[in-house]
Design a protein around this nucleic acid. Sequence first.
DNA 1: CTGAAAGCGCTTACAG
DNA 2: CTGAAAGCGCTTACAG
Lengths: 340, 340
Amino acid sequence: MKPITLKDISEKLGISVTTVSKALKGYPDVSKKTRALVKELAETLNYKPNAFAVNLRTEESKTIGLIIPEIVHHFFSSVIKGIISQAEKKGYLVIILQSNESYDLEKKQLDLLVSKRVDGILISLANGTADFKHITDIMDQGKPIVMFDKIAKIVKCSKVIIDDRKAAYTATQHLIDTGCKRIAHFRGPLLPQNSIDRFLGYKKALEDNGMTYDPSLVYIFDDMTFEVGEMFARKILSEHTDVDGIFVNTDLVAIGAITEFNRQGVNIPKDISIVGFSNWFMSSAITPSLTTINQPGFEMGKMAFKQLYRELKAKKKKKQITPKIIELETNLVQRNSTRS
Amino acid sequence: MKPITLKDISEKLGISVTTVSKALKGYPDVSKKTRALVKELAETLNYKPNAFAVNLRTEESKTIGLIIPEIVHHFFSSVIKGIISQAEKKGYLVIILQSNESYDLEKKQLDLLVSKRVDGILISLANGTADFKHITDIMDQGKPIVMFDKIAKIVKCSKVIIDDRKAAYTATQHLIDTGCKRIAHFRGPLLPQNSIDRFLGYKKALEDNGMTYDPSLVYIFDDMTFEVGEMFARKILSEHTDVDGIFVNTDLVAIGAITEFNRQGVNIPKDISIVGFSNWFMSSAITPSLTTINQPGFEMGKMAFKQLYRELKAKKKKKQITPKIIELETNLVQRNSTRS
DNA sequence: CTGAAAGCGCTTACAG
DNA sequence: CTGAAAGCGCTTACAG
C-alpha cells in the first residue's frame, strides 16, 4: 500500500505534476476548474505530501529541538508543556532530549539535533556546562537558538528568564521581615547562573538589612534532590543550632528539609522558617505548606517558543536577528513554612 | 556558509559521488586508500549527511512519535524519560505531543505524526477515546504502534501494561486486612481501561471477603486533580460517615483527599485509611505518607520503546509482526495512611 | 493557464 | 575497485 504521490494524481487526471502541485498549494495561476478537480481527488485519495521530499526541497522540517536537564521535574515539565502547546499552534513539532545535567551529553545531543537539521533549538543548560563553544558554533551556522531558565550570560542569543537575584532577595527579605535573625542558604551547584544569582540576591538582602553574611551558612551541593534536603536539614541541626531561617534554592530540596525537620520535632515556622523556590505543585500539599517563589514555567515555555518562532521567520526573510532578553515576573507565595 | 555535501568532497578529491558515499559507509568495494582519504577529508570538513536527503532516499527518519495525555504528571513524565533514554541508545529521536485527554486532539496529532512520516508511534490513550479507528487506520498502513498504560483491549497492537485489576485487588485487600469495614472507591473517569480494571479489582476484593459492594461508595469524576480529591473527601464526610477506608484511583487525588481530611481533623489512618495508586514522588513527602501501588513508569517507557524498536526492525526485514502484551510487576508500598 | 525541466542530496543497482 | 545513471517526491523558475 504505497502512499499517494503527486504523480498518482497527475496521471489520474491527465495533467502535469507541476499543475497538481500548484493547484494543491492554491497558486493563482491555475484555473479554478483544475484546482477544484485536483483538490477533490487529493481529498478522496487522502493525499499527504511526503514530508521527507518537502523537507529536502525547502530545507526546513518544521521541527525544533529541545534540550532540557531533567524531565521528571515539575518546573521543567511545565516548561515543556508550554513549548509544545505553542509550537503545535504554529505547526511545529518538538523533539525532546534530556541532558541529565551533563555537559558531555548536552554537547552530543546538540550535535545530533543539528545533524537531524531541526529548524531551531531551545535549550536550558546543564549544571555541568561551563564552556559554550558548542552553543556558539551552532549560532555561527545561523541556526536560531533560544535559551531559557538556565542560561549563559556570555552567549549572545535570545533568552527567557526570571530575575533570580531579585526573587531571591524578596525571599530572603521575607524571612527577615518575619523575624529571622540568622538565615542559612541551600545554594545548590556552583556553576549555573541561576544558582549564582539566587545566592547573590540572598547575600544582598542580608547586607541591606545590616546582617552579617556568614559563608559557613551557605550549603553547596550538586544534586537537587529530596534526600539532599533531608541531609542538610540534619547538618543545620548539628552545625548551626542558631539558624532560624533557610532560603532554599529549589522546592524539592526544601520539601526534603521540611520532612526531616518534622521528623526531628523542629517546629516550622516557629523554630526554623523556610522559603523555597519555584512553587512546585507539592509545595501546597506538604505540612506545613511551603512559602516559595512562584516561577511561571508554562509561560516561560510559551515565550521561549514564541521568540524562536520570530527568529525562524526572520531568518526566512533573511532579516538580521537581534537577540532579545525576555524577563518574566515572579512573586512570593506566602504559606505556612514562614511566620505571618 | 553552505553545509558540506558529498559532491563537495568528491570534487575536492577528484572522484565520484558514488565512491565517496560508499567509502563513508564503509562498503567493502572501495580501496583502503580511497576510503581513508575520503574519511579524512569528511572529518576535516566536518561533513554531516543531509538528513532530509537520507530520509527521502531510505524512507525512514529514525524518529518516532509519542502521544501522551499529560506531561506535567509524575508517572507520565517518568515514562517519557524511559522512552527517550532508550530511544537515544538506539539512535532514535522522539517527537512528543500531548493530547490533554482529548480524543479530537489525539486524532489530529496522530494524523500529524503520520504526515510527518515518523517511523513508529507510542501512545497512551486519552480518557476521551472510545473509538479506535484512528489507531487501526495507522496499523493498516503498516506503521508500527505500541500502546502503554492507557490501552484499548480491542486493538490488536503491542502493549505495555500492568495488571491494574490485580494491583487494585491488592490495594483493597490491604485495607480489608488492616481492619477497614466500609471501603469507598474514587474511581475516576468511566472510559479508560485502567479505570475499569481498577474498579473491578476493588469490587472483586470486596466480594472475595464477603463484603457487600455498594455502588453509592464509588465516586466517578473526569479530572484527576488535587482539587477533586479535596471535594470528594468532603463528600465522603457528608454522605457516608461510616466509611473507614478509601481506595483512590491515583495518588494526586488521594493527596488532595488527605489534605482535606487533615484540614477537617479526620485522623488518617485511624478514622479513615487511604490507599493511592502510582507511587508519585509526593506520596512519601506528605503527612501522613501515602500507602500506594508502585507503578514502574521509567521501566514502562523503556519497554514500550524496546517493543517498538523490535517491530521497526522486523518491518525492515519484511517480517510479520505478532503483537505482544508486556506486563510489568507492581507492588504495594505500605506507608502511614493505612494502619499496620 | 499549463507543463517540461532542473535540482534538493543522497543511495544503490548495474556496467565496466 | 570505480563511476554514470536513475530515482526518492517534491518545488519552482522558466518557456510557451
